[in-house]
Write a protein that binds this DNA or RNA. Structure first.
Lengths: 223, 223
DNA sequence: TTTTGTGAACTAGTTCACAGCT
DNA sequence: AGCTGTGAACTAGTTCACAAAA
């Protein structure tokens, strides 16, 4: 490393893999724990053994964004934590809407992990008249899905979580895209078609369970 | 392929990647749709274009388990569907328990996608006295977590879904393992330590959201 | 001495391209 | 002619191993 001086972000990372960004989030969580425990400095090896990660990978992932470490010492916990929050875009409050006020949508709206990490659940959106105007147990208001566009025009909405039944997922995704939201976390089964420039991440519960089922089925063969 | 005659499963797949098993589940869903639509036969290319997949990959994934296709024709939808259900271990009803009767656990217990795909939600387990004895809206009974072991001894439990707050996740996982359950779907944030021979799959909502946040943060740099 | 940052080596996963079957 | 099954080529991701820094 010659050009890039320490602690400066490198040139815009042309294409960071999803696996890497997921790990960055994991590292941040580890650092939060260490910080809470009053640990001031940690080596990649220390992180690796404590949290079951690979030291070389940690170093490579971090080095990609700058020189955050000190040779012979490791990383300063608070400092690295700050860097990671910046890299992950968590230095501002991200505004999240949840589409679908069914069981899952309501549960996600009140999920404590989100607020904790600095996400702001702005509102729930649903098409069912009997739900509109009410709110989740935790107090997140339920709006008419038809209002999504105007809400998005009025206030910044960063991420949409889609938690509607499968047949509605694609039309809802289209609404979300039309509202100008650039990131989607999808819990509906099946693939969504999304234009370039919008980031989609899917959590497919059926696929997860069936993958476990495969493992069980294979295990039984050998037994 | 010389030794292995058509439609026979090949020798026990020594180590199938998770990516592959996830895709098998996706293929199954596609075939369900095609079958429901009355389609009798489909080529890998047809599947690929219709569901945004890669034809070569579909063929390779499937060929790993047997010769299910017919050259010049493609795959018979019903037949391949049956094969995939068998491979994924869905030819028997899998019995699932959910640990944690909070918002998320209750939502998962009533999630229609699971029952639909042949999973049986046997029960919810929680430590809170005021919840024990009640049931989810959909009628899944809530038991004392202390009863997990005896229930597991009495009846077969295939998969445990962990949906408890982070600090309880590891102790709960230990209970699940002690009860002899061999597959875990974990929704709690953070890593779980699990012995060899137990399959763990994690869905980390915070990581998912933060990964989206990263994308947004990067996008803003270029804009 | 300790530990980073990183090229090189390795491993895993995907896609190509085509022989061979129907 | 059409499409599978599969080696070969390629691409992505991980781990090693070590020079350079503190």
């Amino acid at each position: 490393m010659l050009v890039n001086r320490s602690n400066k972000r490198k040139q815009p990372p042309e294409q960071v893999s999803e696996l890497t960004t997921n790990r960055l989030s994991v590292y941040l969580r580890c650092l939060n724990e260490l910080d809470a425990a009053g640990i001031q400095t940690i080596s990649s090896q220390g992180l690796a053994t404590q949290f079951h990660l690979n030291a070389a990978q940690i170093r490579k992932d971090l080095a990609y964004f700058g020189e955050f470490g000190v040779r012979g010492v490791g990383y300063y916990v608070k400092e690295l934590r700050r860097h990671l929050r910046k890299i992950l875009g968590l230095d501002r409050r991200l505004r999240v809407v949840i589409i679908g006020a069914g069981n899952l949508g309501l549960a996600l709206a009140d999920y404590p992990g989100f607020r904790q990490e600095g996400f702001e659940i702005v509102g729930l959106f649903d098409a069912a008249n009997e739900k509109i105007g009410h709110e989740s147990r935790g107090g997140v208001p339920i709006h008419d899905i038809k209002a999504l566009r105007s809400v998005a025009a009025r206030e910044r909405l960063d991420i949409a979580v889609i938690a509607v039944p499968a047949p509605h997922a694609q039309p809802v995704a289209d609404l979300v895209v039309a509202a100008g939201i650039k990131a989607i976390l999808n819990f509906s089964p099946g693939a969504l078609v999304i234009p370039e420039g919008v980031k989609l991440k899917s959590v497919d519960l059926t696929v997860s369970l069936e993958s476990l089922s495969f493992y069980l089925a294979q295990g039984d063969l050998d037994a």
